[in-house]
Design a protein around this nucleic acid. Structure first.
Lengths: 338, 338
DNA sequence: TTGTAGGCGTTATCAA
DNA sequence: TTGATAACGCCTACAA
């Protein structure tokens, strides 16, 4: 019931062995006789010794901890990326601190501050929608700390991004709609401050252009792609002259729009076909099931950690831009089957 | 590009002020003249000073950090609880470290070790399904650290649980099925090692008994209630003499079972009605929408943190059992509308 | 293979 | 109001 914990000095005293030897033994150093090591480890167990990581981290200036910042942990895509990160991190003996920015720059900045003051060895981040200015990232990099961006890349100098080919994926998604005979295709777009959503929009536009379809500004509906936004966007669709399909830059908005339109007795896919983005678990369950783009979330997480790990261990401050691009896959379901 | 960070000593030297004063100023102590304080803070900014929390935590033996362990962050219920925790924690100036046990005791134990060695001030946990033995929790408590269990309570001495009235909720859910005319009601149950699932099963049984319906052992299908388990359980149903409804101890299993049965051309709710548990977002989207039990997730998170906070600040090691019970709500949807 | 000594960056205590 | 000093618990040259 006491909070005072045993230290290496307690073990040292109890055994009449110097604390430096105790420290070495506890770190399984080869410079301690097996017998002594055993004695020390037993005594440690007996006293309920529990290493004080704070002290050890302070001393070594190495935390073996990385920070992971995502917009929301409840998004399936992000929790899968985290699962990937955790798997490799675990094997590399790294701890991870998971944080959510909730799409707010303010929170994001504060989280980075906190991670910094806890001296994490590096950061993996998918930036918030509000992050239009990258000063806080650059400041962080300038201090020599490695940071790697995934899913939502960040265009600053000498940086590493782990992404999918958003342009290509969006191009294919849009072309798929054209293939099934759609011409009046709406695009639910995210904030254009994010490179990611620019690319998705550009992929959409490029597909239209390739097939000689005019790109109409009113047909690109920009929002934060949250649930409420999906409903608002659906309402806007109904005021447009003619719409036969939607390519949404995420599943969330697509799904809530579909729900709304279904209530208004609009048939999906007959009246309006839908393609989403991310393959959230919900997309296969909704009726009609949603055609969407599957991303290699788990693999992306693993790769992101590996790249960060290299930078940490090599202590090479990065001198070039590096981008790892994964490919995604269009999954065709009922929402585009006519 | 250098990783060597400014310390209070650098500020001290640059200003010719002792580092203890610098420390006080940076902590906004009232024992430093306003003018000096300003000078110090400016210099700190100029040098890009960034407090080393490790050192501070080591010295003060207080981390202002709590650990939160949940089975999976992707479960909507848990991410909502976490949101609640974060909100209050933020206002109380506490950081939180989010971890997932993935339902494995091994991982759970390791996470507790890690949190301990990082000297968190307390832990909030929803224990894993595999946790049949509570030694690691008791060991933790014995060291005088506060830990509070939420959602999945833990029956050890002098403990605090934040839960909902699982018995009552399950009783009502089952009675609802009886009300709409069901008699052959299957229960998808979770591991009986968890108090939580025992209570849900008992609620189910009590409702049957109250209405003079025989409880049949084969009608209670126990599993881990994961997606695959739902499918397996659905298959088992088909081998039972007669089934007109299912009360599942979570939504995940209910939903995957429904999907499977739908494919087998079984009509829901006409042939088999379904009630789930948790009100995952997916339950309102699936066809038919799933009747389920809504829990006050966000509130539970807030309350759990508040209780932990009290224990931390009062430094009162707990001498009694305390249980905070929230009430839940049955949400009736199409899966039980006949 | 083990011991000695000093410091990582902070803060608390005591003295000035 | 400020300064000097020691200590939190650990690790690592260096010496023995």
């Amino acid at each position: 019931m006491e909070k005072s914990k045993a230290t290496i000095h307690d073990i040292s005293e109890a055994l009449g062995i110097d604390s430096s030897t105790v420290s070495r033994a506890l770190n399984d150093s080869s410079r301690v006789k097996g017998k002594t090591k055993k004695k020390i480890i037993n005594k440690a167990r007996e006293l309920g010794y529990q290493r004080n990581s704070l002290a050890s981290k302070l001393r070594t200036n190495k935390t073996n901890t990385i920070g992971v910042i995502v917009p929301r942990i409840s998004r399936h895509f992000f929790s899968s990326v985290i699962a990937g990160i955790e798997e490799v991190a675990f094997n590399s003996n790294y701890d991870i601190i998971i944080c959510q920015s909730l799409e707010s720059v303010e929170r994001e900045k504060k989280l980075i501050e906190t991670l910094l003051s806890n001296r994490v060895d590096g950061i993996l981040i998918s930036i918030s929608m509000e992050s239009t200015n990258y000063d806080h990232f650059e400041a962080y990099k300038r201090q020599g700390y490695p940071i790697i961006f995934f899913d939502r890349p960040c265009n600053i100098l000498e940086n590493t991004n782990v992404i999918i080919n958003d342009f290509q994926a969006s191009f294919e998604a849009t072309e798929h709609l054209i293939d099934i005979g759609c011409k009046d295709i709406v695009h639910f777009s995210g904030p254009q401050t994010l490179e990611l959503y620019k690319k998705r929009r550009n992929g959409y536009m490029a597909a239209l252009e390739k097939h000689g379809i005019l790109v109409r500004k009113e047909y690109i509906i920009e929002s934060h792609l949250m649930q409420e936004d999906g409903i608002e966007s659906a309402k806007k669709i109904l005021n447009l002259p003619k719409v036969d399909s939607v390519f949404s830059a995420n599943d969330t908005a697509a799904i809530s729009a579909m729900q709304y339109l279904k209530k208004k007795h609009i048939n999906i896919p007959k009246d309006i076909a839908f393609v989403g983005f991310s393959n959230e678990p919900i997309s296969v369950v909704i009726t009609p099931s949603l055609t969407t783009i599957e991303q290699p979330d788990f693999k992306m997480g693993k790769e992101a950690f590996k790249l960060l790990f290299e930078q940490i261990e090599n202590k090479t401050s990065q001198k070039e831009n590096k981008t790892k691009i994964f490919s995604s896959k269009l999954i065709i379901r009922s929402s585009t089957k006519r």
